[in-house]
Structures are given as C-alpha cells and as structure tokens.
Simulated assay, not measured.
Amino acid sequence: MILALATCVAAFQPHQGRPAASVKMNGLKEDVAAAALATVAVFSPIAASAADIDNGATIFAGNCAACHAGGNNVIQTEKTLRKEALDSYLDGGRKVESVVYQVTNGKNAMPAFGGRLSDEEIGDVAAYVIDQANGDKWDE
C-alpha cells in the first residue's frame, strides 16, 4: 500500500527538473495525503455498501416469514431467530456473516437462498435478522 502511494506521488508530482534522489521531503505529507485521497476516490465505488435493514424486512416478509414469522421457527421450534437461539444454534454465532452463510447455503430443513436472492438482498436480510434479535424486536 505504501509502495502504491509512493508510486502515485512520484507519478503525479513533478520534480521540477531535479533527479528523484534529490527531491526533498518538504511537502511529502501533503503529497501522500493527496495520493491517498485519490486512491480512495478511485476505489470507493468498490467498497461494500451498508446493509438496508428496511429492504431486509421486505425481503424477509416475502421469503422467510412463512417459516420464521415473528422470529419463530415452525419446523424446529427451539431454533428461533432470537438472540439466545442464534448464539446457540447458528454456526459462527450471532453475527451478520453467520446469517449470510446460513441464508446463502441453507442447512437441514432450511433451503439455500443463494441464487434465488442476490448477495445484496441476503446481506440486507441478515442485517434485519441481527437487528431484530439484538433489539429483542421479534415480538413487536
């Protein structure tokens, strides 16, 4: 990363006819900061967007609520979507990444939704499930 930033600085900073070895360190901080900002601007569209919990609620209602209405589980009643159950039964524990894995791949009686839902939709559902569980909102 540092090498990439240094390369950016060297590429975009004229040396005013001086050899690279004679360029002084004065202003280097500003040059590195400018290169870092340029790097962020170039790569920021690639960064993952924040999950949309409201969209997750809509997707959950259309795809998950038949078995998990109100955070329950109509197939295996002990494996609800409440905090304690997610902590106990979800591979990896109660976190978005674990829910994403479960929804994408399925497990036991739960079908896999990878291929049916986009990665973004699955991420939104996972964020919604964790938000509901963490806030004890399933019975609202």
Rank of each mutant, 00 (worst) to 15 (best):
A57T: 07
F113D: 04
G135S: 01
A133M: 04
A127Q: 07
A51V: 08
A11E: 11
G70W: 01
P111L: 03
L86P: 00
A21E: 12
L5Q: 01
T58Q: 08
C67V: 02
F60Q: 02
D52F: 05
I130E: 06
N105D: 07
F12I: 10
A4M: 09
M25C: 14
A36I: 09
L3F: 11
A57P: 10
G92D: 05
A6L: 14
L86M: 02
G106R: 07
V23K: 03
A10P: 00
A48V: 10
P111M: 02
R18D: 08
G17D: 09
E140N: 15
N105Q: 09
S22P: 02
N73E: 04
L28Q: 12
V99C: 03
D139V: 10
L86R: 00
E30A: 08
A21L: 12
S88N: 11
A69K: 14
Q76A: 13
A133E: 02
S118F: 07
Q76H: 14
Q132D: 04
A41G: 11
M25G: 14
G123M: 07
R18V: 12
C8P: 08
N63D: 04
V9I: 06
T80K: 01
M25D: 14
T77H: 05
L117H: 05
A41K: 14
K107D: 14
E84G: 11
V74E: 06
A85F: 00
D52M: 05
G114H: 03
N72P: 06
D91Y: 12
D119L: 07
N72W: 06
T80Y: 01
M1E: 15
D91F: 09
A61V: 13
A6Y: 09
A34I: 04
G106N: 03
E121Q: 13
N108L: 14
N73D: 04
D54N: 15
A41E: 15
P14V: 11
D139Q: 09
Y128E: 06
A33I: 09
V99L: 04
A51M: 06
A6R: 14
A33H: 09
I122T: 02
I46V: 15
D139C: 03
V100R: 05
G27K: 10
F60L: 03
V40S: 13
I2E: 13
V23N: 10
I59W: 07
T39W: 15
N105W: 06
V125A: 01
A109L: 11
G106H: 01
D52T: 06
G71H: 00
V23C: 04
A21P: 08
S49D: 12
W138M: 00
T77L: 10
A6K: 11
I130D: 02
E121K: 01
T58R: 14
L81M: 12
E140G: 10
A41S: 15
M25F: 15
F113T: 00
R116T: 11
